[in-house]
Each structure stands twice: as C-alpha cells, then as structure tokens.
Amino acid sequence: MNSEHDECAGDTAGQLSDGGRTDPATETFVAHRNLLFTVAYEMLGSAADAEDVLQETWLRWTGVDLGTVRDQRAYLVRITTRQALTRLRTLGRRRESYVGSWLPEPLLTSPDVAEDVELADSVSMAMLLVMETLAPTERAVFVLREVFDLGYDEIAEAVDKSPAAVRQIAHRARAHVAARRPRGVVSLAETRDALDAFQRATETGDLQGLLHILAPDVVLVGDGGGVKKAVLRPIVGSDNVARLLTAGLGRVTGAASLRPAQVNGHPALILRLDGVLDTVLAVRIDDGLITGLYAVRNPEKLSHMERETALRR
C-alpha cells in the first residue's frame, strides 16, 4: 500500500500486541482499508475528507467487541458510510461558499483501476460530478448498490432506512444518474486517442485541430479554489473553449510540459510549470468527442497526484 491515504491508519498498522503481532482489529481494518477509502471517496469526491472519514472509522472500530460482529467487512462499510454521510452534509454547506466551480479531487491511480471497468467508471471525474447532483442518502445508496453491489438489507443498516425505502431510493438514484452519465462506456484506447489529438492541438496552437476533437456543446470547468486563476463559471461551446485554450496555453513558457497520466482510472493530462504540478486536466468523452474538460488547479487538491492511490471494490 503506497498511497498517502495509507498514512490515515498508518499508526493503526503499527499498533502491535505483545509478541510483535498485529492485533485482529488492526489486521481487519488494514485488510479492508483501500475498500473503505474508495467508498468514502466516491461519496465525498475528496481524498482529504475520505482520509478523515477513515480515521473516524478506525476510532469507532477499536471500540467494537469483535466477538459480536458477524460480518466484519460489512460492519466497517457501515461505519464508513455513516461517517461519510455526516461529512457529506457538512461539505454541502461548505461548498456553497467555494470560490468558483468545485471539482472532485483528482487521484493518480494504478493500471489495475483502469482494468476494472466498473470501478474506473464510478470514480471518473464525469461520474463523480454526476453523483454530486444526488442528495446525500441517494448518493450513499447508489454507491453501495451500483458500485459495491451490497444487498438492500446491508445498505438499509448503513443509511438507517428500511430495505423497502432503500429500494425506492436506489431506483430513483439510478434513473437520475442514467439521465446524466456519459452515453456509453468509452474504451481506454478511444480516450487515449482523443487526448493525444487534444494534446497535439493545444501544444501547437492548432485551433482547427481542437475544434475537430471538441464536441459542439463541450463544457470546460476550472477549479482554482480562489487560490489559482481559473474560469469562475463553466465555458460552453467548442469555439469558446478552443479559443480560450489556445490563448491560455499560448502564454505558457517553454518550461511547461503537458504529459499523460492515469487519473481516476482514466487517461488524463498533467501540466507542469518549471517541474511543478500546476493543473490536472481530465476529460469526458461521448461518441469519440470531448464533451467535458475538467481543469483542477487548486493546490490543496493536487496532493494525491504525486503517488498512486490504491482503490478497491
């Protein structure tokens, strides 16, 4: 486990019982921690907040009598979900005062995340933004049911609803997401081809090349968090987006580098200025064209781009 969120319970792994062996509670928590982080991250869209949720989960887990727990994995998921729900409601109020557009925190992910198509789809920038439009309980139910395939009874315990109510919520959330999610599963090769064409066009200032790869109704969203300069409102339309990109990148000095990377399970681009990470650019692709561009510049959201983060289902 080599990601920064491993430090969240880093001390937990070091809590050893007599004889130098890890105690059962710690072993179980560490074994499921990447799964729990993924649950929290999908619910919150923030790695930093997901780490805080894991720490809270750990503190509660240490007070549990393991002898009374029938399914330890399910129990941990339930604790994590409840903590994430509490934080999600708080975050909603905090994001109302966020400067400019809010985007999820990007993660540098390993190739195995991309190989799990359903997991990669669920943590993509586009899908996380779709899930932002769900109410907190709807989001929790959608994540636990559609991504992690938990039973309605398990989900009901996690969100304090009846199984019948959870079924209704799941149906409503599924329909809501289906109406807004990308129109079809896009292969890694298709995404990579689109990004290659986009990168060539931006690096050479090829306006026509950009217009060729951008959908007519493409939307560019920037997130500077009030710390870095970024568009405060989404820019809509291929002509507007292409001209903004060519003008903006045209001002970048020769010390800039635009390189591909695996971000949230999908190909993306990373802009570095003088070797320092400046922007993570993720995309949404529909029918071979880029329909969404998500530029994260807020430095507070880029800390998980230096080392890979392990995600699990």
Results as ranks from 00 to 15, higher is better:
residue 214 L to F: 11
residue 43 M to K: 04
residue 42 E to Y: 03
residue 44 L to T: 15
residue 309 T to P: 00
residue 52 D to M: 11
residue 48 A to H: 15
residue 286 D to C: 01
residue 50 A to K: 09
residue 280 V to S: 05
residue 44 L to W: 10
residue 10 G to V: 06
residue 52 D to G: 11
residue 126 A to H: 11
residue 173 A to E: 08
residue 197 A to R: 15
residue 157 E to H: 11
residue 98 Y to D: 02
residue 93 R to Y: 09
residue 223 D to W: 12
residue 256 A to Y: 11
residue 40 A to P: 01
residue 233 R to K: 14
residue 195 L to G: 01
residue 81 T to E: 01
residue 50 A to N: 07
residue 116 D to Y: 03
residue 103 L to R: 07
residue 294 Y to M: 04
residue 176 H to C: 01
residue 133 T to D: 04
residue 273 L to Y: 06
residue 201 A to N: 06
residue 157 E to Q: 12
residue 26 T to N: 06
residue 304 H to L: 10
residue 232 L to V: 13
residue 91 L to D: 07
residue 247 A to T: 11
residue 270 I to T: 12
residue 227 V to G: 02
residue 31 A to R: 14
residue 99 V to W: 07
residue 302 L to T: 10
residue 243 R to I: 06
residue 249 L to R: 09
residue 241 V to Y: 06
residue 67 G to F: 03
residue 249 L to E: 08
residue 2 N to P: 06
residue 95 R to Q: 10
residue 93 R to V: 12
residue 217 D to G: 02
residue 222 G to I: 06
residue 309 T to F: 00
residue 165 A to N: 07
residue 82 R to W: 08
residue 95 R to E: 08
residue 200 R to P: 02
residue 257 S to P: 00
residue 67 G to N: 11
residue 178 A to I: 05
residue 59 L to I: 10
residue 53 V to T: 13
residue 178 A to M: 05
residue 285 I to D: 00
residue 238 S to Y: 04
residue 92 G to M: 09
residue 205 G to Q: 07
residue 150 L to H: 15
residue 94 R to Q: 15
residue 39 V to C: 02
residue 46 S to L: 11
residue 231 V to T: 12
residue 302 L to P: 05
residue 224 G to W: 09
residue 33 R to M: 00
residue 216 P to G: 05
residue 256 A to G: 14
residue 260 P to S: 10
residue 237 G to D: 04
residue 190 E to Q: 11
residue 193 D to G: 03
residue 50 A to D: 05
residue 204 T to M: 05
residue 270 I to C: 07
residue 199 Q to A: 15
residue 175 A to T: 14
residue 118 E to K: 13
residue 242 A to H: 08
residue 22 T to E: 08
residue 301 K to C: 00
residue 166 V to N: 04
residue 164 A to V: 06
residue 85 L to A: 12
residue 19 G to H: 02
residue 53 V to N: 04
residue 84 A to D: 08
residue 99 V to C: 01
residue 79 I to E: 03
residue 168 Q to S: 10
residue 47 A to K: 05
residue 107 L to G: 04
residue 304 H to Y: 15
residue 248 G to H: 11
residue 277 L to H: 12
residue 165 A to Y: 05
residue 313 R to V: 09
